[in-house]
């Protein structure tokens, strides 16, 4: 299953999208813009190519369209003296790619923004096909190819939850002094911590190139770090008690608290807090239609199951080690 997931993660193409434009400031009058697309087919469908500019909820035509290749098209925008909004998006449309656009912050010192200014078109220009006809993972601004990390980074946390869940159930049994359950708990927590560390490091790397920082005060991030520290403390605490019945009981109580804390910090807090950068948090439903379309789902669900199975397998090995270790210590 993981084989399918990994092949699909790297082989499914991204659908067409707008990558960037070559200007960062607006100038009054005529301005030449080069639009860079990603996985687009500007040249292949040149006869249907249309370019236009969206300003707020109005639209402007462009002139002198020149297709350079499949990814690049050049056109000229003739800015008026006043614009209705500073929210500007550059659109390119053809029948294969649908409407791809780049919407970016442009500095503007020359053109007045007057909210009741009107442009020549108030409705979107007629296009033959607004949606792309290519199958693939969705193209999201800023994320680009890193949307594939959904199959790698996110299941790390699902696996951690699953393993910590095993530990939680085992700890409830271990509270009565059941040494065997204590071994189950410690094995699952150790493997869960492995996935926690992997999730933290991969998340940090992903954040560096999308949020432009290694670490940010997102409640999800700090919560995950606290969870890591709490579970590391569990291992230290458990290791510091020699009597095994006592060890099973005390560490079980700690582990139950740690699990509850994890649920609160990772599932509840980010939803209540209003400054989370993670999708699906801050009051949004986790997997809205917009976030997770069918192409992602067809890989994401097997990915979660596959990584959980891998985590469970590593846990069985770890449990084998804990039991052997216990056996030797008893002699």
């Amino acid at each position: 299953m993981l084989g399918y997931v990994l092949v699909a993660t790297f082989s499914v193409p991204l659908v067409p999208g707008g990558l960037s434009i070559n200007i960062d400031a607006l100038h009054r009058g005529k301005q030449t813009v080069i639009f860079t697309g990603y996985n687009t087919h500007f040249q292949d469908d040149a006869q249907h190519l249309q370019c236009f500019v969206g300003v707020g909820d109005q639209y402007m035509a462009v002139e002198n369209i020149l297709i350079q290749d499949n990814q690049h098209v050049q056109f000229e925008v003739n800015w008026p003296d006043t614009l209705p909004s500073s929210a500007i998006a550059f659109y390119v449309n053809n029948t294969i790619d649908g409407s791809v656009y780049v919407s970016t912050a442009l500095s503007n010192k020359e053109i007045a923004i007057i909210s009741n200014a009107t442009l020549e078109n108030t409705t979107k220009p007629n296009v033959l096909n607004d949606e792309h006809t290519v199958w693939g993972f969705p193209f999201q601004p800023i994320l680009f190819e890193t949307i594939r990390n959904l199959m790698l980074h996110v299941p790390m946390w699902f696996t951690m939850f699953f393993l910590m869940g095993i530990g939680f159930v085992a700890s409830i049994k271990a509270m009565r002094g059941n040494v065997n359950s204590d071994l189950v708990a410690v094995a699952s927590v150790k493997v869960g911590l492995l996935f926690c560390i992997l999730g933290l490091i991969t998340g940090s790397l992903w954040a560096r190139f999308t949020w432009l920082t290694w670490w940010t005060k997102d409640p999800q991030l700090n919560g995950a770090l606290v969870v890591f520290i709490v579970y590391a403390a569990y291992l230290l605490l458990r290791n510091s008690i020699d009597d095994e019945i006592k060890r099973a009981r005390i560490s079980a109580v700690f582990n139950i608290f740690a699990f509850v804390l994890m649920i609160v910090l990772l599932m509840v807090m980010p939803r209540i807090a209003d400054n989370s950068l993670h999708p699906g948090k801050s009051g949004n439903p986790a997997f809205s239609k917009y976030d997770l379309d069918s192409s992602l789902r067809s890989v994401f669900y097997p990915a979660v199951i596959g990584w959980i199975l891998l985590g469970y397998w590593i846990y069985t090995l770890q449990l084998k080690f804990e039991k052997l270790n216990d056996k030797i210590n008893r002699r």
Partner: peptide
């Protein structure tokens, strides 16, 4: 940051594989 940030995905995959 080049080519659609694909190297970030490679990096993430490599970290996971090396870690495990």
């Amino acid at each position: 940051f080049e080519s659609g940030k694909i190297k970030v995905v490679m990096g993430v995959a490599v970290i996971i594989f090396i870690g495990i």
